Simulated scan of single mutants.
Amino acid sequence: MAADLVLGGVVLVGSSVQRLAGIGFALVSAPALVLLLGAGQGVLLANVAAGTISAVGLVGSWRQVRLAAMLPLVAAAACTVPLGAWVAARLPEPELLAGTGALVTVAVLLVMRGARLPALRGAGGALAAGAASGFMNSSAGVGGPAVSLYAANAGWTAREFVPSAQFYGLLVNVFSISAKGLPRLPGQAWLLVAAAIAVGAAAGAVLAGRVSDVRARRIVLLLALGGGLVTLVKGLWLL
């Protein structure tokens, strides 16, 4: 029972963060889900929950999606999701834990530094970001940072980014689930996860009107950095 409550709390926090900032569920929650459920099942649940909360966020903002800009990212991600799923299925648990933690940590540090990479500009940059994101999403559950870096290099504002990120998050997580299947959880855990997503989405919507974009971004990145480091350390300890 205690483990289920912790699981619900992790999903609730991640859902609130994603509804608030457009991305962040996987960054904040994937490391904790991996530690709770194991690398394979934790990443799968991160895919399911992140896709669901993205769909919820799109209900009121789908008209603001920059569809033409997102299509190259979605197409590139569709090509690399199967490769990420293949890698995740074959890596031993310690290596997958360490890899997930390392990907989250490096991605967060790049976003925190506001990395400006010429390779992430234009159509080529969209394809590169989408390819990296698709692989990371299906292998480690963290596809958002590559898209965030692309948006930063393209000069998007937070208002432009959030609905487009939710559109992308819905599709790339559907791709990932299609490649790997659903996580194996008991019925009680699924009900708890569903309730946590609903409450988290409502809380994030309320907070969105009270927390500045800068502060929301800082909260997401600090939580993600801590989770990534903990997961990396555990993976290295088990090697």
Rank of each mutant, 00 (worst) to 15 (best):
Gln18Pro: 03
Thr105Ile: 10
Trp86Phe: 15
Leu229Arg: 06
Ala132Tyr: 01
Leu36His: 04
Ala165Asn: 07
Ala85Leu: 10
Gly9Glu: 07
Tyr150Gln: 08
Ala203Cys: 12
Leu120Glu: 03
Met1Leu: 11
Ala202Leu: 15
Gly9Phe: 04
Val43Met: 08
Gly84Trp: 00
Asp213Met: 14
Val17Ala: 13
Arg113Tyr: 04
Val106Ile: 14
Ala123Arg: 11
Trp190Met: 08
Asn173Val: 05
Arg159Thr: 02
Ser148Val: 12
Pro94Ser: 13
Pro31Glu: 05
Gln166Cys: 12
Leu225Arg: 03
Lys180Leu: 13
Ala102Val: 08
Ala55Tyr: 02
Gly101Tyr: 01
Ile219His: 02
Asp213Tyr: 12
Pro92Asp: 07
Gly57Asn: 03
Gly24Cys: 08
Ser138Thr: 09
Leu149His: 01
Gly57Arg: 02
Ala39His: 01
Ala194Gly: 13
Val43Ile: 13
Pro186Asp: 10
Tyr168Met: 14
Gly181Phe: 08
Leu232Ile: 10
Glu160Cys: 14
Leu171Val: 15
Pro145Thr: 09
Ser164Cys: 10
Ala75Gly: 13
Leu36Asp: 05
Gly226Ala: 14
Ala2Lys: 15
Ala131Ser: 15
Pro92Arg: 00
Val74Gln: 11
Val230Met: 13
Ala107Gln: 04
Ala49His: 01
Ser139Asn: 03
Val11Ile: 14
Val34Asn: 02
Ser138Phe: 06
Ala208Met: 13
Val206Tyr: 15
Pro94Arg: 09
Leu67Pro: 09
Leu37Ile: 07
Ser133Trp: 00
Ser178Lys: 09
Leu96Cys: 09
Trp62Phe: 14
Gly9Ser: 12
Leu91Tyr: 07
Ala49Lys: 01
Met136Tyr: 03
Val59Cys: 12
Pro145Ile: 06
Val162Arg: 08
Leu127Val: 15
Thr231Val: 14
Ser178Glu: 00
Ile197Cys: 10
Leu229Gly: 03
Val230Arg: 04
